[in-house]
Simulated assay, not measured.
Amino acid sequence: MRRVVFNQKGGVGKSTITSNLAAIAAHQGLRTLVVDLDAQGNSTRYLLGDAADDAAPGAAEFFQSTLSFSVRPTKTADFISPSAWEHLHVMRASPALEELHSKLESRYKIYKLRDALQALEKDYDQIWIDTPPALNFYTRSALIAANSCLIPFDCDDFSRRALYGLLESVNEIQADHNRDLRVEGIVVNQFQPRASLPQRTVQELLDEGLPVLQPYLSASVKIKESHELARPMIHLDQRHKLTQEYLALFNGLGENT
């Protein structure tokens, strides 16, 4: 199963959601890979901590390798690093992704990630792809490579308005490049149940028949501690309310075995 977590809007929790759901998958014994395509490297830092500085070559080096022909090409597995958590591996991001973007786009390497991840399916039960906050080469590559798409949503009117364009972009990728791609659901993040605006905004999505997933992820300062310590919630505090929400969200997703 290959999932992409995608939203063109920044600050909606893509990396946090990707990393925590992937960490739960690994914690449940599933062989799990996180592919970080955001040059900021938030998922990389979250899952690898200080070890990210000494990790194996990653996503940038993988894409660099696609720009030239080699009689003995590097195996995709060589661009993957183990995390401190059993069953959880990372193809790390780096700022070099930004430098490569125009070259990859002009050379039309849009299917290389799909081909590489399909070849890894025998090694991993789940592959999670974190994307940059833009519909660029890397995001399109991820959508072409994935079976399903999760869309983080942070409960404001700007996000709601942007959601329709985002869904159109996913539908276009599906029609032109990836018939198997589906929107698995909208993940409501930083939800405040006692505030009227989040409740009203989410209800509007439900009224429109959009696939809003349950449960909603609560706003919590604990997630900031999780980021600082580079410990996903399942490894930081299994009894915390937010951890339980992540567990329920993960267990509600399809094909988790």
Rank of each mutant, 00 (worst) to 15 (best):
W85N: 05
H87P: 04
Q40E: 10
R72N: 15
L104K: 02
Y108Q: 14
S81P: 01
H101Q: 12
D53P: 01
H89M: 13
T32K: 04
P57G: 08
Y108S: 11
L30A: 10
G11D: 10
R92S: 12
P73H: 08
Y111T: 12
T18I: 05
I80A: 00
Q40S: 05
Q40K: 07
S65H: 06
D50H: 14
A39Y: 07
F63H: 02
A59K: 08
A93N: 05
L97N: 03
M91T: 08
A59H: 08
V35H: 07
K103D: 12
R114L: 00
L88K: 02
F69P: 03
I17V: 15
V12P: 01
R72H: 14
S83K: 05
G41E: 12
G11R: 10
L37Y: 10
A39P: 06
L47A: 07
H101F: 06
T32D: 07
S94Y: 06
L117D: 10
F63T: 03
L67C: 09
S15P: 04
L104E: 03
F63M: 08
I17D: 12
L67E: 11
A84Y: 08
T66A: 07
I24F: 04
L33S: 03
G49I: 07
R31C: 06
A60K: 01
L47I: 09
A116P: 00
S94R: 05
D53W: 13
V12Y: 06
L88C: 02
H27M: 12
S106Y: 12
V12E: 11
A116E: 04
L47W: 11
T66Y: 05
K109W: 08
A77F: 03
G41W: 11
I80P: 00
E105Y: 09
V12A: 06
S102A: 14
L37C: 02
R107D: 08
K75L: 14
S15G: 07
R72V: 11
A52I: 00
T18M: 02
P95M: 04
D54N: 08
A59L: 04
L30H: 14
E98Q: 08
A25Q: 10
A22G: 02
